[in-house]
Structures are given as structure tokens and as C-alpha cells.
Design a protein around this nucleic acid. Structure first.
Lengths: 170, 170
DNA sequence: GAAGATTGACAATTCAATCTTT
DNA sequence: AAAGATTGAATTGTCAATCTTC
């Protein structure tokens, strides 16, 4: 059961109002454990083979993919699942390091436009092959395409609030 | 493609040696985004409704489930997917707050035994119903049991190094 | 007032170095 | 030398408060 207390419901596996079944628990804890391990290991690889952390990489990739055009912080927050305060500090550090620049948004005076710099692009280009290979080794290559597809759906439902019967354009 | 650069391979979706296909990328990024969102939200719930963070909760649950008996830090690190330094700092804080105690291991002089205290157990008991409900709402209840089962397998392969054809006792 | 974003104080995490026992 | 664990300094993340514009 999810709370982790033994003693009640010795049979195990049953869904008793409050706690999680063994299967539910295994999924939830496995998810957490997998994330901790993967990110530690990928972070180590990235920072030893390049100038970027995993967070740096994620942010720069989004900017780069955006066609080189600028993005608003709230957009970045949405795609990366990050909150505004953390993002703001992170962007500040990337600005200091010269990887992105920040300019006032002309159409909405409250906001900013974040753009990847040439320096940022270079760092990304240098980091990418090693990082992608590491993601493959630690994650992609260990799973079937069926498993990856289910994981994609899971993320769509949990993170993006899609209902399970929606398709990609829904 | 995983690196996030457009321009090469306009067709998309193809597996070209280095990068990730769109499907692979969607799974990987979705996983990261889902984790960020879930843990932020569960952390907020836990720390506003109880004395524990998500990390505190995970650690205390493991100790409690261990039948009230003590665990070695390296065992905790293994089940939670955490590294020794982080774990050591975390245990130190929990000791200071009176939630666990730490005593020298009699059979291996290098090691320690960590045990949940009554205070820790009380905090866990108080936090559990709200946290479990939050995990259900944000995660479990949004997924089918089939999806949960696939996720459990994914974690077993990625985090615990099981091969996909192994069963649970393998 | 709500949305977009920043700031500073505080808390948690990482990295490298260290220590002891095996 | 390797395994178990801790420590301190530096980095990174969180929370609440704030500011400006919509």
C-alpha cells in the first residue's frame, strides 16, 4: 500500500479506499526512482563532457528548436514543466554565462523575449551528440517502441491534461 | 529530433544514427515534463498540509515499511535512487528534526543504521492520507491499469536494470 | 484583480575531498 | 584498493513578497 505501512490488508493488492495497491505503488515509486537515477547519470555525463547541465540543455534545445526565434519565459515554463521563479533564476544564470539574451517584449510590456545566442548554440552543438547517445543508452535503447509510445501517452495525460481518448491534435 | 535542431531531415520521424525520432523525443521530454510538474505539485500539497517534503516522505515510508527495523544508508539510496552525499545530508536534517535516529552499525563498523522514530512515524501518519489522495488525483486516477503496468515494467528495466523478458522474481 | 516576471532570503543538492573499515 | 559514509563549499531550487502591465 502506498503509505507504506504494513499490517492492514495482509492479502495485498486490493484497492482499499485510501492507499495504493501494490501495482499502483510499484508504478509510482518506480517512476520516482527511475527519474532520480536517470537525471543524476545524465547530469554527470553532460557536465563532464560539456559546459551544460541537463536543465541548461533542455532550455537551450527549446529555444533552438523554436527556429532561432525568441520565446517568452512562460512558454518555456509550459514546455519544460518548470515554474516561473526557478525559470527566472535559471535564465538569469544563462544570461550571465552568455548562452541566451533577454530583451523586453515589444507587444506585451510585462514580458520578456529570450533568445539563444551564438555562444549558446555552440555549447549546445558541442554537447548534443554525447548527450543524445547517453539518453539512448540509459533510456531509449532499453525500451521497446511500444513502451515508449505508452509512456508518451502517459505524459500527455498526466502533464498536459489530455484525456486518454484524445488524439494528438485534439 | 532529440537535439532539437531543425533543418536536417525535414521528413521527421526517421531514425538517423545520432538523434532521436519524434516519438522517442516525445516520450523522453514528456517524462521529464511530467516529473517536474508532478513533484512540484505534490511537494506543495505535502508541505502545506504536513511537516514533510516529498523526499522526507519517501525516505520515512521506506523506513516504516521495513517493519520498523533500521536500514543502512546505501540500502535507502538503492530503493530511492539517491546518491550517498545527498542522502547523508538529508538523513542529517531528519535526525536534527527528530524524525529518524542514526546509530553505528555493529556488524560493519563503516556503516550506520537509520531508524524511524515515533515522532517520524507520527508525521508520516499525519501526512499520508492527504499525500496518497494527491498522488491518486494527479497520477494514478488519470491512468489505466494497463498504463500503470507498462510504467512499472519501464522502471524495472531502466532503473533496476532488469531485462524486459524477466519476470518479477527473475 | 490577474498574468508575466523578477528578487532576495532561505533550503536543498552537487561536487570533490576526506575518513574509516573492509 | 574498494566500499560505506560524512563534510564543506559552491551551485541550484523554493517560497513569499514585490513590481509592472494587462
Amino acid at each position: 500500500m502506498a503509505r507504506g505501512r504494513n499490517g492492514d490488508a495482509p492479502g495485498a493488492g486490493a484497492s482499499d479506499a485510501g492507499w495504493l495497491t501494490d501495482d499502483e505503488q510499484a508504478a509510482w515509486r518506480g517512476f520516482l526512482r527511475m527519474h532520480s537515477q536517470l537525471t543524476s547519470s545524465l547530469n554527470r555525463q553532460l557536465s563532464s563532457d560539456s559546459d551544460l547541465s541537463l536543465q541548461d540543455y533542455g532550455l537551450l534545445v527549446m529555444l533552438e528548436e523554436h527556429g532561432g526565434g525568441p520565446m517568452r519565459p512562460f512558454e518555456l515554463g509550459r514546455v519544460l514543466g518548470l515554474e516561473k521563479s526557478r525559470l527566472s533564476h535559471h535564465i538569469g544564470r544563462l544570461v550571465d554565462r552568455g548562452f541566451v539574451d533577454r530583451s523586453k517584449c515589444p507587444t506585451d510590456q510585462r514580458g520578456w523575449l529570450i533568445r539563444i545566442t551564438d555562444t549558446g548554440r555552440e555549447a549546445l552543438t558541442a554537447a548534443a551528440p554525447g548527450h543524445v547517445a547517453a539518453v539512448r543508452r540509459a533510456f531509449i535503447d532499453r525500451l521497446t517502441s511500444e513502451q515508449l509510445s505508452v509512456l508518451r501517452d502517459i505524459a500527455a495525460v498526466v502533464a498536459d491534461g489530455r484525456r486518454s481518448d484524445e488524439d494528438c491534435d485534439g
